[in-house]
């Protein structure tokens, strides 16, 4: 466990029946980082977030939030979250709902300030039942902000928003993270991770499959794909190749250096034909990394 870390997860595990929802996660987030937890549905993002917030207990491993347990961090108002399914009271106004949560915290910010920061100052008197999907998300954002946390966790924050609302939401978030707060947000929108995160953590099937800056992850996963028909190929250990797949004579090579790979391939197997080299976008790389094994 690193001293001074905002979040330190060590060998975190959680299973539901036979499903290993989170299958051994190690992650350290330093204060001030904006981290995207990226992965398809069922990758274990929400389960990880729940454990981080102390809403569920891990089966194995340890969690530390600013050096304390998640619950202690919640009580101290250091960690807060915008929940994916967190609903709002059916019989309260926006300001009342935020006021209720503020009343429970030890050092809350004024309700008006939380509404302002979430961009919903004009909705203060509105009943919680009379809000659009995007407005509800912003109220949840205000609920998360009101305790003035050091670490903000967002679980799929923009899931109910249209493109425009989503952009406005991230602008607000930007203003917030510029003040040096730590943010961890789970998303399955690649472009959000790319645009707003300093660091991307890719999850698949309960494990972390890539972790680094957006540029690093892009570099790690990008490259080119070389497809060819190679009759009688036996040894495909070639320079510049990261991954080999084959179906009969049809081979697919994921390359870090496709030029070196194609030269070596043709030297070794001059009969190779139907050679096709395509660039791998971040989108493809994301799918390749997070998609299910076939």
């Amino acid at each position: 466990m690193r001293a001074g870390a905002a979040v330190a997860l060590n060998g975190l595990r959680k299973r539901f029946g036979e499903v290993r929802a989170v299958d051994g996660i190690d992650l350290v987030i330093t204060p001030g980082e904006v981290v995207a937890l990226l992965g398809p549905n069922g990758a274990g993002k929400s389960t990880t977030v729940d454990m981080l917030l102390g809403l569920s207990t891990p089966d194995g491993g340890t969690i530390s939030v600013f050096g304390t347990s998640p619950r202690e961090a919640v009580v101290a108002g250091r960690i807060s979250a915008m929940l994916q399914s967190g609903a709002l009271l059916d019989d309260a106004t926006v300001a009342e709902a935020v006021g209720l949560i503020a009343a429970l915290h030890r050092k809350p910010m004024p309700v008006a300030q939380a509404l302002e920061q979430a961009g919903i100052a004009d909705l203060a008197g509105r009943k919680c039942t009379k809000l659009s999907g995007g407005q509800k998300q912003r109220v949840r954002f205000a609920l998360a902000l009101v305790c003035d946390p050091d670490l903000l966790v967002l679980d799929e924050p923009t899931v109910a928003m249209d493109v425009e609302t989503r952009r406005a939401f991230w602008q607000q978030m930007r203003a917030y993270t510029d003040t040096g707060r730590t943010v961890l947000f789970a998303t399955h929108y690649l472009e959000e991770a790319e645009e707003y995160a300093d660091r991307v953590v890719l999850m698949r099937s309960g494990r972390i499959v890539a972790d680094g800056s957006v540029a690093q992850v892009r570099a790690a996963v990008s490259g080119r794909t070389l497809r060819a028909v190679v009759p009688g190929a036996t040894d495909l250990t070639l320079p510049g190749v990261r991954l080999v797949e084959r179906r009969g004579d049809q081979i697919t090579l994921t390359c870090t250096d496709s030029d070196a790979a194609v030269r070596a391939l043709l030297t070794r197997y001059p009969t190779a034909h139907d050679i096709e080299i395509t660039a791998l976008g971040l989108e493809d790389a994301f799918l390749a990394l997070t998609g299910e094994d076939n």
């Binding site: 917030l53 102390g54 809403l55 919640v74 009580v75 108002g77 807060s80 979250a81 929940l83 399914s85 967190g86 609903a87 949560i101 429970l104 915290h105 030890r106 609920l143 998360a144 305790c147």
Partner: peptide
């Protein structure tokens, strides 16, 4: 769930 994210 929201309340569980407070000291309550």
């Amino acid at each position: 769930r929201q309340l569980r994210l407070t000291p309550l």
